[in-house]
Design a protein around this nucleic acid. Structure first.
Lengths: 199, 199
DNA sequence: GTCTATATCCAGATAGAC
DNA sequence: GTCTATCTGGATATAGAC
């Protein structure tokens, strides 16, 4: 019995399976980075991993299931980057760093930004599990803002709008450039100055 | 000769032609509003105006030409809305109104917002003529900011990021709602307060 | 100016052999 | 678990009759 345990992914068979799924997702990222988020096709994807298209269905139930796994991966990558940021004793300086991480994360991979933060694929909605990752991430932002002494009820929404706006402008109008990335510190300064004046 | 004048669109034939083009574009807007920007197909579109798909090629050279005409229409609609705004003797108050116009314009038609301000359709780039309309609009924003006494070199970029961010968050996370729309005045206040402190 | 017919190509997904 | 073959349906665009 022990060697055929099914759901906890410990035997060789499911390890191999997980490795293949990871390989498929890596290839999917490569495609959307090169050709755009909407340009992902199962034929192309299968070709990149040396399979025929129908074989993908052994690993994912549908194309949207692949998008969903990518959505979850993207959110985990961002969460990890935020978590690995060393926390200082200056919460405001930390929020500067968080904002920079977000914007750089968005700009370095516009297709990922599009998947995570815009609703552009017809018919795709993240599963509750995947969406929960995004919600957790936002909650961490709220906690950090509170640590920085900002408790205005709309502060988090304004902060996310600021970060999203810098990212969106950079990605849409000058992909790969730094015209809006360079404004992150000014923007966060502006935010905290205003928030303190409202307290 | 006079009755067959071709290029100035004055005879009955070209008037009818322009009317049909307008009808096609109206139908295209209806489709993208209902099903998403990427869901526009020539078959559907032709059906909505009582044609077969190939007949559309009498009016537009390609599908992207239709997107381009829609892009131009969207920019003209926004420019018109800004232009019709009565100017007061308070430039800062005017910028509040401009920001509200932008965000409301974005939120009331997310597909149009996506077409005008995000780069999401693979292979579509606005023609120089259409793109010029967007550039003019931005220049008007710069002029108004200058009238309001804001001359910081990056002020316009920060302002557009703020407006774009509020729009993007509203459209992506709560389409049809007012959670970020309601923050426009606070955001513009924040912007001017900061800009004046930097002068 | 609109049509039918067609070219060419692509998509996601399933059935069933091996 | 991977394959071939196929289903079903879609797309943009062109040719040529009327």
């Amino acid at each position: 019995m022990a060697t055929t345990s099914g759901s906890d992914g410990r035997d060789r068979r499911s390890e191999r399976r997980e490795a293949t799924k990871a390989e498929i997702l890596d290839a999917a990222w490569a495609i959307v980075r090169a050709d755009g988020l909407g340009a992902l096709s199962l034929r192309d994807l299968a070709g990149k991993v040396g399979m025929q298209a129908p074989s993908l269905y052994q690993y994912f139930d549908s194309k949207n299931a692949i998008y969903d796994a990518m959505f979850a991966q993207g959110n985990r990558a961002l969460a990890e980057r935020v978590a690995q940021m060393p926390e200082s004793d200056d919460p405001e300086a930390d929020m500067h760093r968080v904002a920079r991480i977000f914007v750089e994360f968005s700009v370095e991979d516009p297709a990922r930004y599009q998947l995570l933060f815009q609703r552009t694929i017809p018919g795709f909605e993240p599963s509750p599990e995947s969406y929960g990752l995004a919600v957790d991430l936002l909650q961490r932002g709220a906690d950090r803002l509170a640590e920085a002494g900002v408790r205005h009820p709309h502060a988090l929404d304004l902060f996310t709008a600021l970060v999203a706006g810098l990212s969106a402008q950079q990605v849409a109008n000058e992909p790969g450039g730094t015209r809006w990335v360079a404004l992150v510190d000014d923007a966060v300064d502006m935010f905290f100055t205003y928030m303190r004046s409202q307290a």
